[in-house]
Amino acid sequence: MNVLNFVNAFFSDGAHWHGYDGIPTRLVEHVQYTLMALGLAAAIGLPVGLLTGHTGRGGNAVAFVATAARALPSFGLLVLIAVVVGIGLLPVMIPLVVLAVPPILVTTYEAVRSLDPAPVDAARGMGMTETGILFRVELPVALPLVLSGLRSAAIQVVSTATIAAYVSLGGLGRYIIDGLYQRDYEKVVGGAALVALLALVTLAVFWAAGRFVVSPGVRRR
């Protein structure tokens, strides 16, 4: 199958492993974009989701923001911002953050809101402060779902961060965009394979994080 041949050819070409267009450089760039966008999205989505979930208020606002953010096309946003403010990191970060906020926000909100109310009632009755309830009772139990929201956001960002190359930045998208213009399918397929690999690594990282931070009492084993 020629896709596999492309992958093989791509990775066995020594030139792809060195220099500013080498795989290590592009990989690091890609991871940087991903982490930055995910961090920004988490900084917005987690606190808002936790707070609205805890109070049970603002559910409609959360749903509205998520719907609106999902409706905005990432690629369109990228081109629009690039056309208006010029190329740079901003046109890349805005679409990626817009992409990552809805899954984080919605799952966090749902995770906290749908918790069994009895332990929360017990904690309040014991004299725990509201902050204490949120962080020591609700969050630990909601954590698996919260992580799953972060995970799906991360996968989408890893995949979509390729658009950075369209506005002259680096990352693994470089191979795909350059391959497209140079009619070099080997490069396109190689870049796509690297992105898929990165997605697998992301899954593994979240799986490990789940094992590490989620209490065995919540995991039920």
């Binding site: 017990a122 904690a123 004299g127 402060t129 009772v137 630990p140 139990v141 919540v218």
Partner: peptide, 23 residues
């Protein structure tokens, strides 16, 4: 203060309301 008051009273509810993430 309400938290001081509550800490000085034991509170038991239906279904116990235990914290499932703690031993």
């Amino acid at each position: 203060p309400v938290t001081t008051l509550r800490r000085s009273m034991g509170y038991v509810i239906q279904n116990a309301g235990l914290f499932q993430h703690r031993t």
